[in-house]
Design a protein around this nucleic acid. Sequence first.
RNA 1: GGCGCGAUGGCGGAGUGGUGACGCAACGGAUUGCAAAUCCGUGUACACGAGUUCGAUUCUCGUUCGCGCCUCCA
Length: 445
Amino acid sequence: MNELFIYNTEARKKERFIPIDPKNVRMYVCGVTVYGNAHIGNARPYTAFDILFRLLRHRYGEDHVTYARNITDIDDKIMQRATDEGVGIKAISRRYAKIFQADIAELGSLVPTLEPKATDHLPEMIKMMRTLIEKGHAYEAEGHVMFDVTSMSNYGRLSRHSRDELVAGARVDVAPYKRDAADFVLWKPSSKDQVGWGSPWGRGRPGWHLECSCMIEKHLGVEIDIHAGGQDLIFPHHENEIAQSECAHGHNFVRYWMHNGYLTVDGVKMSKSLGNFHTIREVLDQHGGEATRLSLLTAHYRQPVDFSHDNATEQKRRLDRWYRLTDGIEASDTVPETVIDALSDDLNTPMAIAALDALASPKTAADLKAGANFMGFLMQSNESWFRGEVPEGVSTEAIEAMIQARNQARLNKDFAESDRIRDSLLEQGIVLEDSADGTIWRRAD
RNA sequence: GGCGCGAUGGCGGAGUGGUGACGCAACGGAUUGCAAAUCCGUGUACACGAGUUCGAUUCUCGUUCGCGCCUCCA
């Protein structure tokens, strides 16, 4: 087994992965803000880094990897939604967290070890802000607690932005209570009708970045191995997490930063603000979990992946072939080295998929199944994959009866009748295939 | 304006300093009553220009085009 290499955003190059503690490898992936239905672009990090989780478990042992993925359940957009619907924020965050978890599960990703919520960590946040103020890295201003960017000499090292550049490139008005234009919010005041928590600086709510710093410290420790998320989080989110955690602890925060590229539609980033999105649910309903997962993994995680129905359909066909080959086959006990080696090179999933294709022959079907299972594929029975739920208005008995009638017609060389029956079934979404062993049926795509 | 990423066959998409994965589609054949599935076979792809080199798709520089971050965002 080759060594594991990871592209570290901070170093801007691939680096050999050396865990802090091989008995407890710790990874954190920024989760979602639960204020609405997640789109398929949101699903990309949770499939890509699910592969990382699986790979780390394979290399270090299932009990030696801790994977935390947070749920941001306090945010102005959640508050807005709650106001619009006339309900509390918990009603909103619970609803969409549940949907998100179900979506991700259907995409075949393993459940993380921990899924901490922001609102469960208010005491930790207050403690960290106190520390930052005591150490001179934060200040109070008009009910806000602000992080003082000038107090950190190497602020901006992850995104490679200098404070001056940030100020020069600022496209928003600078709030008057900021000492420096680049300072960011740790805590902001809440009005009477807004959700808030008591704090030494008045009733308010946390800024976006604080929760991750606090949850990582509490659940994973002061320094962790891997922190991952979408490229759009590099700045400001991850930059600010570094600032908070390192200034609070006086210690390095993260060893390896990993960032996935965007999912695009027609070459443009899919985002809620652009409105050009497909929800995960829509895509799952149309293409199913495994084909969607495979289509997300056909491109390397750092490259953009253009979402299209054609691609998802293509992956469905590939999976059809793999399912046919592995029908009734037990998976090998070991995951093929070719798959592990491909993934160990900075999660090269396209190469891993090619390695699976290379095993797609009757002789190596058991290895194919083991490798595919490892990556979260071929998890269903063939019965379920090819037939699933039959289309509405068609019963299995009716299908079997028509197959019998058709085979009788074929024996009588009444091919007009036999084709009529086959076409009739096809109209109902059922495909027939004649083989040496008899006629089988499956649901049409 | 600052910082950064990318450009590979009809499509998707890896990789490499030296006759160019893999998949899908297409085409030819085998098989089939016909299909489907399966099997066999076929394709002068590396944006453009210059440089380094015995040799570049792969390294360097430039050009063009596309995309992203600098504001909420996976």
